[in-house]
Simulated scan of single mutants.
Amino acid sequence: MSTGERDISILVVDDDPLIRLTLDAALTRHGYRVTTSGDPHAAAREQDPDAVLLDAIIPGCSLNECIELLGRRGDGNRRPILVMSGSLTRPDELAGTGIGYLTKPIPLTELLDAVEGLVASTSGTMT
């Protein structure tokens, strides 16, 4: 995995500040431009990232609502999302969406592989 600068922005949305800090550090160290937020509503208004890492359970916002808020880019195209949770069970809301799922705690190599796959989809045309 290269640690050089990439022209890919990742938004991390998680209500846990320690998880945001940890993911920010790991992804930044591997060349991604990272922003973080604990509030998906504010993030949707203020950010237009290439991809999103999203906690499955955020107080005040259902998973479906978070996906709706963050799932489109400013140009209207779909934005790739990767959902993370401490639950071993993939949320039913993700069925048929093509949205990836990781179980916390996430080993660094697994996280980086998943993000690499996620951002690879940003190079194609998303509708």
Rank of each mutant, 00 (worst) to 15 (best):
E93F: 09
Y101T: 07
R73G: 10
I58M: 11
G71P: 06
S85K: 14
Y101I: 06
E46W: 06
V13R: 03
I67L: 15
E93Q: 12
I81R: 01
P80I: 03
E46N: 15
M84S: 12
T122C: 14
M84L: 09
G38V: 11
L82K: 02
A114E: 15
D75E: 09
G96C: 11
D16C: 05
L21H: 05
P17V: 04
L70T: 03
S2C: 08
I99D: 10
D15T: 02
T3D: 15
V34S: 03
D16Q: 04
G74R: 13
L63K: 06
R78M: 05
V12S: 03
S123G: 13
G4V: 14
V119G: 06
L18Y: 05
E116K: 13
P105R: 13
D75F: 15
I99M: 09
S85V: 05
T122N: 03
P80R: 08
L70K: 03
D55F: 05
L53N: 00
G74F: 05
I99Y: 13
L23W: 00
V13F: 01
D92T: 13
P91W: 03
T89C: 10
L53T: 00
N64W: 00
M84V: 02
A56T: 05
L111F: 07
E93D: 13
T125G: 09
E65Y: 00
I8Y: 04
P80E: 10
G4F: 15
S87W: 08
A51R: 09
G96M: 11
V83Q: 06
I99W: 12
L54A: 08
L54M: 10
M1T: 14
R78W: 03
G74I: 04
V119Q: 04
L82Q: 08
